[in-house]
Simulated scan of single mutants.
Amino acid sequence: MTDRIDAKDLARAVQAGILQPGQDQALLAFLRQQPASRGTFQLAHVAFYFGALLIMGAMGWLLTEAWMRIGDGALLAVATLYIALLTLFALNLHKRQQPVAAGVLAAVAVSIVPLAVFAIERLAGWWPLDDMQADYHHYYTYVQGGWLAMEAATVLAGLLMLRLIPYPFIVMPIAVALWFMSMDLTEWAYGAPFNWEQRRTVSLWFGLGMLLIFVLIDGRTREDYARWGYLAGLAAFWGGLNLMESGSELGKALYCLINLALMGLAVVLRRPVFMVFGALGVAGYLGYLSYEVFADSLLFPLVVTLIGLGVIGLGLAYQKRRERLSQVVRSSLPGWLVSALPALRD
């Protein structure tokens, strides 16, 4: 906070009559007492998130078959040790007012829960699949109903961790586990065997449902849990949308309209992540039109370049007028809808 508001700014506020003499120093002292990590994104935070992703990858999709050969007991011991040490370290950092580092480590601990449950199921003889489907890294690549216990345990562990360390990034492994669960439940919805088109449909509707849930949560909690929920929901929804094939021009135009709606939601909710996904979709559609019109033409690279510049220009315009656009759009909506929307965050 103090890297954006300094003593000179507050002194000018006193001169303008906004603050009374003496209030500027009291306010500045208050701001300096606030944790520097809240409301700002520092370079160190990039290291925190990058390190967390490395550990998640090492204990998840990069886990090799050699780890499967050390035995289920050893696998459970390693996973339990990781979870316990990471949780204790995160709690210690949380007490020392280091919320970002504590939150990302807590999220890593939650992401290792499926590995522990995997080992427990195999040790107890509860593993529902055959030995050909017993490699843990398949959890991230294959859709199987047998993963459901691992996913449910991850969601439960994530919710418990949020009680201990209320940090928004912990929502991400919860959302990913729920997304995997939706894929694994495809067999229940469509029966076996099921195809990629059905999986895409499930992903799309699950993503849409997640977005609606986090719209209801947004602005109604002390921490910004919706930030990562929106990202996970958009990844599922937009990913499913893009994987759906449409041979008709009407279907492609509808795709563009949906992405335009996402850009509109970015203005209403004041969430740039909607603008990013929507702009990518619209740019893809415009690129498709340009290719159809200017195929085998020297103008094609120029047209695509102009589209890219136009998207950048829209981003700059949105950045400068974000608050005003949000207020204008919201003022044109019905009162009942505005009251249902989340309050705008700074």
Rank of each mutant, 00 (worst) to 15 (best):
D130N: 15
G207V: 03
Y136G: 03
F237D: 05
P342F: 10
G233M: 07
L306R: 03
T141Y: 11
S290T: 15
A7F: 04
A29D: 13
E323W: 10
F169D: 00
Y291N: 13
M132D: 14
M132F: 11
M244I: 11
A29I: 10
G191C: 08
A266P: 09
D131P: 00
A226I: 02
L115Y: 03
A90L: 00
A74G: 01
K8I: 14
M161E: 00
L254E: 08
G60R: 04
R200I: 09
I112H: 01
H94T: 00
L178R: 04
L302A: 15
P128D: 06
L341S: 11
I258N: 07
F214C: 02
A340F: 08
T40P: 02
D296M: 09
A109F: 02
K320C: 02
L148A: 14
P193I: 00
I312F: 14
G219D: 11
L309E: 07
D184Q: 01
D72R: 10
R345T: 08
V100M: 03
L27N: 05
T154G: 06
S331A: 15
I70G: 05
L19H: 12
A58W: 09
V276M: 08
A134G: 13
L204G: 06
G219A: 12
D24C: 01
M68R: 07
V108D: 01
G335L: 15
H137E: 12
G191N: 10
A66H: 05
G191I: 03
I174R: 03
Q319G: 15
L306Q: 07
S248V: 11
A44F: 07
V329H: 04
L43Y: 09
E65L: 04
L208F: 14
I70K: 04
G310V: 02
H137W: 14
A157D: 03
N242V: 11
G247S: 12
Y82T: 09
A44S: 13
Q98F: 02
R324F: 08
F237M: 15
A16R: 15
I217C: 07
A189S: 03
S297L: 08
A107T: 01
Y291I: 07
R322H: 06
A236N: 05
S182Q: 13
L341P: 11
I312R: 12
M68A: 15
A235L: 15
E245P: 00
L28V: 07
R220F: 03
D24T: 05
P99N: 11
S331P: 01
A84C: 12
L269C: 10
D24W: 03
G103A: 10
F89M: 09
L185R: 11
A157M: 03
E292C: 01
W336M: 10
P334W: 09
A47W: 09
